[in-house]
Write a protein that binds this DNA or RNA. Structure first.
Lengths: 128, 128
DNA sequence: CTGTATCCTACACGATACTG
DNA sequence: CAGTATCGTGTAGGATACAG
């Protein structure tokens, strides 16, 4: 949700739409069905109300999720995926599989490579 | 490249790896073949040297790109995708297609919905 | 040409208190 | 319950100058 420069490619646009610390988790969480605000909050352990609502609104503005309010005595709002949101989730699947497959490797490399050293010269294998 | 909480799912891990303003563009740019630092810099118009090198190093640390130096009189370094990088690029394709397909809609919605209004109550259609 | 070294800033995210 | 209103913060990203 920054959109500074025009998108350079499709991935660029798609990433922009899911850009936000909790958005993919929200989409993921909603993929099994609509959820209320409180449920989501519990689901995404650690998110603040402010940020959750912020990202939900952005997702709604992008029409990936649908916000339905019920005029009841006790306030009730349900969020669910739109058709567009579902299609995005589908497009995300291969990426999810890639992540699942390679997660051990990723974590392993990051574990023994102290973050401070990543951006300092050659940890890189020599070729010559 | 933040990795604060343990990954909640595969997408989460994958997104973390491509998290960085220019990383997908770098991967995309390298998908057609190895490139030198200067070429990349020209390709990704607008990136600063500092940030470019930073993200290249992170990608290299994650073993998505390969950094090859040639000991010549005029410094020369070539970056290319690793097998892992190529596999990520493949996993990114559906997302890219989704983005390409929906980019017009995304931009349209964001255009007539002024950014300031996104996070203020109902722009949302009524249902009831 | 391929980087380092600094300095700076905006903005996403977070903590907390309050409201209909 | 489902938000809103504030205030505070870290850090990714950018500008620029310099170096091997």
């Amino acid at each position: 949700m920054k959109q500074k420069r025009p998108y350079a490619c499709g991935v660029d646009a798609a990433v922009d739409v899911i850009d936000g610390k909790w958005k993919v988790l929200i989409l993921w969480s909603l993929s099994t069905g609509g959820k209320r605000f409180g449920e989501l909050k519990r689901d995404l352990s650690g998110v603040s109300e402010k940020v959750l609502i912020q990202q939900l609104r952005e997702l709604a503005a992008d029409e990936l999720v649908h916000r339905r309010t019920y005029a009841e005595v006790v306030p009730r709002v349900e969020y669910s995926l739109t058709e567009l949101g579902r299609s995005l989730n589908e497009a995300l699947e291969p990426l999810g599989e890639w992540g699942a497959r390679n997660r051990p490797g990723i974590e392993a490399r990051r574990a023994h490579l102290s973050p401070e050293r990543v951006n300092t010269a050659d940890n890189h294998p020599r070729h010559g």
